[in-house]
């Protein structure tokens, strides 16, 4: 009994390790396709459209509302200490450093990542990847590479939109509705937020999240069992794994970037 349980544990551990290995090999193969992608920017363009443009609406609306909520909550807390002028700092710092990259990554994982997984999984199930292979076209380079770089490019831009709209949402609530001083809102924000320390680090974060979310989505699709049930399981796994990876990585990156 015990031996059997141990053996099962070992087997699933080995299977997980093999999965990690396959995922890294796939990543390397997808990145290696970059030289073939560069002379054909239209393929990349189509994927920026799929991942980026189609996610703008949900990112914009979410960013605006998250910023407004931050403005409201921040005002109530800060006002108790007579520090309502720091509202801009609070809203902008939390958006640029954390919420912008993280929430954008979670939304993209749900909106575009799951679609990528399903698309690739279905292409596998309907033998389209095999067909490419038989037409002497490398499916990783033709299908995965443009999606990977499309995701990596779209994510920081989406995160920047999220943060910018969030700051405007916070400004609208704080200055427009609750009467915080307009000048103090912006000047305190500018004084306390550092371009390199805050904005650039936020962009680096979202770039990392872009890589991870797209990578997980592509791997789950490519590695899916080519059946209807297999693809649906892969889609779920794609979103769950991407969300966990984003949150875990966010902790590590925050510790690296903002620790004194």
């Amino acid at each position: 009994m015990v031996m059997e349980a141990l053996a099962r544990l070992g087997r699933s551990g080995l299977a997980a390790l093999a999965g990690v290995g396959r995922a890294h090999m796939l990543l390397a193969a997808a990145i290696a396709g970059l030289p073939e992608l560069l002379p054909r920017p239209r393929l990349l363009l189509a994927q920026i459209y799929n991942i980026g443009v189609l996610s703008v609406l949900i990112i914009a609306v979410s960013g605006l509302f998250v910023g407004m909520v931050l403005g409201l909550q921040g005002y109530y807390v800060l006002n108790q200490f007579g520090a309502a002028e720091s509202l801009g700092v609070m809203v902008a710092a939390s958006l640029v450093r954390e919420l912008g990259p993280v929430v954008t990554a979670l939304l993209v994982a749900g909106r575009a990542g799951s679609a990528l997984t399903a698309e690739i999984g279905l292409m596998k199930a309907t033998e389209q990847l095999s067909a490419l292979e038989m037409m002497a076209v490398n499916p990783v380079r033709r299908v995965l590479t443009p999606r990977f770089f499309g995701g990596c490019l779209a994510m920081p831009l989406l995160a920047a939109m999220f943060s910018a709209l969030g700051v405007l949402g916070g400004w609208f609530v704080g200055v427009g509705l609750l009467g915080v001083d307009d000048g103090a809102f912006w000047s305190q924000m500018q004084a306390k937020l550092d371009f390199r320390g805050d904005v650039v680090n936020g962009v680096i974060k979202s770039l990392v999240f872009g890589v991870v979310v797209t990578w997980i989505a592509l791997f789950q699709g490519y590695d899916a069992t080519p059946t209807a049930a297999g693809v649906s399981r892969a889609t779920t796994r794609s979103v769950v794994h991407a969300a966990l990876a984003v949150l875990g990585l966010d902790f590590i990156l925050t510790a690296l970037m903002f620790g004194d």
Binding site: T126, Q128, A131, M134, M135, A136
Partner: peptide, 18 residues
């Protein structure tokens, strides 16, 4: 890949790029 350009394959499902 060069050899495969000289092979054609008809898949059961057709496998057209949809």
């Amino acid at each position: 890949y060069r050899l495969r350009t000289r092979m054609g394959m008809l898949f059961q499902s057709g496998a057209l790029l949809d």
